[in-house]
Every structure is written in structure tokens, then in C-alpha cells.
Amino acid sequence: MPIANHHSAVPVTVDADKCIADKGCTVCIDVCPLDVLWIDESTGKAHMKYDECWYCMPCEADCPTDAVTVNIPYLLR
């Protein structure tokens, strides 16, 4: 069975100007219980790769530069 990609608006946003992943920081990636945050190879910054969020907030709370925002996902708003 062939597989298609579909688009999804994800709740976690990362401010690339504030993110210091390029300095070796992986805090938000480490603390995510669902492992959905990854380094974007093209920018070197963190981003939400999988739409599997529990909106539990450690990524935002633990980010040293306040670069991460957890929004309430659209279907819940």
C-alpha cells in the first residue's frame, strides 16, 4: 500500500534567533517524553518533527533561552 505525507499544524514553535542548538544545546530534545523535537539539519536549530505532542511543557520550561513555545494544539483551542 503506498504511503502519502499529510500536513499538520504543530503546537511547538522554536524561535530560531534565540535557539542555541548550534552551540551544542539539546535541552528541549532531551526532555521531550515523546522524542518529537529534533535538530533541523538545514538550520542547525531545534524544531518539532513529529506531531505527537502532549503539551506537557518541559521543552518550554527547561529551554535556557526561552526560545520554545508550546501552543495549545488547534483542535483543542
Binding site: 552551540k23 544545546c25 535541552v27 535556557p64
Partner: peptide, 11 residues
């Protein structure tokens, strides 16, 4: 000398 690197080291 890079405060950014020092910061990540603290983490």
C-alpha cells in the same frame, strides 16, 4: 571565551 559555549557546558 564564548559565553554561549560556557552556557551549554553548565547545562
Amino acid at each position: 571565551p564564548d559565553p554561549g559555549l560556557r552556557r551549554v557546558a553548565v547545562l
